[in-house]
Design a protein around this nucleic acid. Structure first.
Lengths: 196, 196
DNA sequence: AATTTACGCTAACAAATGTTAGTACAAAAG
DNA sequence: CTTTTGTACTAACATTTGTTAGCGTAAATT
């Protein structure tokens, strides 16, 4: 077989990571084998190791790529001088966008992170906790300012994050409404459910 | 080692299924091995096969147990003569209760069903689809009767189901509010987000 | 053109997996 | 007490797994 085909200025490693995200999404990290990944990439299994260190490296590259993007977004939102509800809406829209346009990667980061190996596992979990805390703080702030119903902020965050990760079902579904429409519907229900 | 200890009038098979649900929840179906399960049960791996046919039998027993309960609940709700919003509230409360009190089993059925083998996989998916359709029909009905905001019913169902399955995080969380409080908060946000 | 690097291949490995065969013995049934 | 059944054990199996070693050649660099 020939070489791994790259396009634009992505490396061969990038190609492998992309295909890995698709495979891990479809089969789950544990069930996906390196031989399957190799076949999708168009190469023998052993050849993958010219580009990557291990299977678990693939997982942590995927997970931390997503986590970093989320953290950056959160920095941006916190810096804004807008109402809490507007901040929440921005976060939710960002997350929905991620689920719609970077589906595989986000999905894997969401569902397969528990197979990360140490020290990445602990690091990832810490980042996740911190991120949720920041999100909850915004909700809390909105409650104090009476923009938002008096509810448990942790539960509100939990609902939003998981509702969004459910976009997975939307991807699978046959008769799907378009992405923009999905986003507006989700905002209506989620943000609408918070508003006082 | 001695025999598998049963209590009340549960069979040894029941004990294995229960432990399997816990293990599958913790490690994931693929990552959980029969040798690990055996250790938890207090027996050698080969001994499990005196009670069960295969690893995958365990998974489908767990999944269909949950699916059957859900279908029965749905029959009951549909038969009621109440408003759509009341029906939805009842469904949501039932689902939350399941996540709180039968956590392992429900979690496994929710996240690991894709590892079912045929023909169980197709059967399960069909039941899942049907169940969601029934749920969406109730939402649809509420929209027609102007009890509920004009939204895409499929999206509404997706949000509710996934928000509820996110109770997983609540289980993991250290400083958790109690189950009843969680339920009321979820109802406020979810049902509140639908109400016109 | 000559040399070095990148990258593909085949072959093989040790470990882990689900599962079966065959055996021994305790509990239940007669 | 005797027989039968249920259930646990050890040993072994064929596969599948991630990964490494060693080799050859095409591409890149000089």
């Amino acid at each position: 077989m020939g070489r791994i085909k790259t396009e634009n200025n992505s490396t061969r490693k990038d190609v492998i990571i992309k295909k890995a995200a698709e495979l891990f999404k479809e089969k789950g990290f544990k069930a996906a084998s390196m031989r399957e990944l190799a076949e999708v990439v168009g190469v023998e299994a052993a050849s993958l190791y010219n580009h990557i260190r291990s299977k678990s490296e693939l997982l942590h590259l995927i997970c931390f790529n997503v986590a970093n993007r989320y953290n950056l977004m959160m920095d941006e939102v916190e810096a804004e001088k807008t109402t809490s509800l507007q901040k929440i809406e921005k976060i939710v829209r960002f997350l929905i966008g991620g689920m719609v346009h970077n589906f595989e990667e986000v999905y894997v980061s969401d569902r397969e992170w528990k197979y990360l190996s140490e020290p990445y596992l602990s690091n990832f979990q810490a980042q996740r906790r911190a991120y949720r805390k920041r999100f909850a703080a915004i909700v809390e702030d909105g409650i104090k300012k009476k923009e938002i119903k008096k509810i448990d902020s942790t539960t509100a965050v939990l609902i939003m994050l998981h509702a969004i990760s459910g976009i997975e079902s939307w991807h699978r579904s046959k008769q799907k409404i378009n992405g923009k429409e999905l986003e507006e519907n989700m905002i209506t229900i989620l943000v609408g459910g918070l508003k006082k």
